[in-house]
């Protein structure tokens, strides 16, 4: 199976994103390629729809479930998907990803992201090495400190790895709107490339301080829980699609929810998770023009709040 060498992958990715960022931060890399946005610290383009793996890729050795996840990854890559995000906390998800990436001829758009999640800074390097071994990639693109756990010690480790060329980007994560004050302090004081936080049409706390700060500080933003753990899709799908959905190129509610998120100028990508191929295809449909403008975004949020 032919795989891209790291440098070639990187070159291809940069080539795919050539053309520079538009004023909106959007880069239509090619006619059929998904929209991407530049990672502020390097300008490298990243497709706006990525993939999360919480629960959905924790399938152990189940051959039937592994085949389904291979199909999901194929659909993701076929649609030009980029970031895949995981964590040692997600059970077998990293091992499953590693197993399937070895099976698939993954493309240069793959942007590997995982986390370090241990209370002890001393245990960080061993956990990081274990994650790298499970993914089986020559080098991880992004390591993040999971839920700010022992973040000072882990940040030191990740900074050293980045300086040594063993890692391309580093970041911090929170979810469910927790510890935003502490995250804000870190964003102001520490040189990080990415933050990951919960942001969706029903949870807009990040719009007040964190998203403007990310723009100001040049930090890429990954939006997790775009569907609020599935609850937002369940709530929305009891209602017909609004008329304006067609205006922003959405054929279903998940695309509406995703376009709301990735159209925020500070958000670099959203990472919906799914265990079904057809849902992956739906999600990736959100990575295409047109995206809603500011006025439409307000209307979307107001209409959704009334559902």
């Amino acid at each position: 199976m032919q795989r891209f060498a790291p440098d070639r992958r990187r070159f291809m990715r940069l080539l795919a994103g050539a053309g520079g960022a538009l004023a909106t931060g959007l880069t239509p890399a090619a006619t059929s390629a998904p929209l991407s946005k530049p990672i502020p610290s390097t300008g490298e383009p990243l497709p706006v729809i990525g993939m999360g793996t919480w629960i959905t890729f924790n399938v152990g050795d189940d051959p039937r479930a592994l085949d389904v996840r291979a199909g999901i990854l194929r659909a993701f890559f076929a649609a030009g998907g980029g970031m895949i995000d995981s964590s040692p906390m997600y059970g077998s998800a990293e091992a499953v990803l590693g197993k399937l990436l070895r099976r698939l001829d993954y493309p240069p758009t793959l942007f590997s992201a995982t986390k370090v999640w241990t209370r002890s800074g001393d245990d960080g390097p061993a956990e990081i090495a274990a994650s790298q071994a499970l993914w089986g990639l020559p080098r991880m693109d992004l390591f993040q400190v999971h839920n700010l756990l022992a973040w000072r010690a882990h940040l030191e480790t990740l900074q050293q790895m980045k300086a040594d060329g063993a890692l391309r980007y580093l970041g911090m994560t929170t979810s469910h709107g927790r510890r935003h004050d502490e995250l804000e302090r870190i964003m102001r004081e520490q040189p990080i490339d990415f933050v990951q936080l919960t942001y969706n049409i029903a949870n807009r706390d990040a719009e007040r301080r964190l998203l403007p700060l990310a723009r100001e500080r040049g930090i890429a933003v990954i939006a997790n829980r775009p569907f609020g753990g599935g609850a937002l899709v369940d709530r929305a799908q009891r209602h017909p699609l609004p008329g304006w959905a067609a205006e922003i190129g959405c054929g279903n509610w998940p695309q509406v929810l995703l376009k709301y998120i990735v159209s925020h100028p500070a958000v670099t990508c959203a990472i919906p998770a799914t265990s079904r191929v057809e849902h992956m295809q739906e999600n990736m449909g959100a990575a295409h023009e047109p995206l809603p403008d500011a006025a439409m975004r307000e209307r979307m949020a107001a209409d959704f709040a009334r559902l």
């Binding site: 919480w54 959905t56 924790n58 152990g60 189940d62 479930a65 906390m89 997600y90």
Partner: peptide, 14 residues
């Protein structure tokens, strides 16, 4: 709880 009902049930089958 990092797994779904379907995967939990398959766990017992395997």
């Amino acid at each position: 709880i990092p797994f779904s009902r379907g995967i939990y049930r398959r766990l017992f089958e395997l």
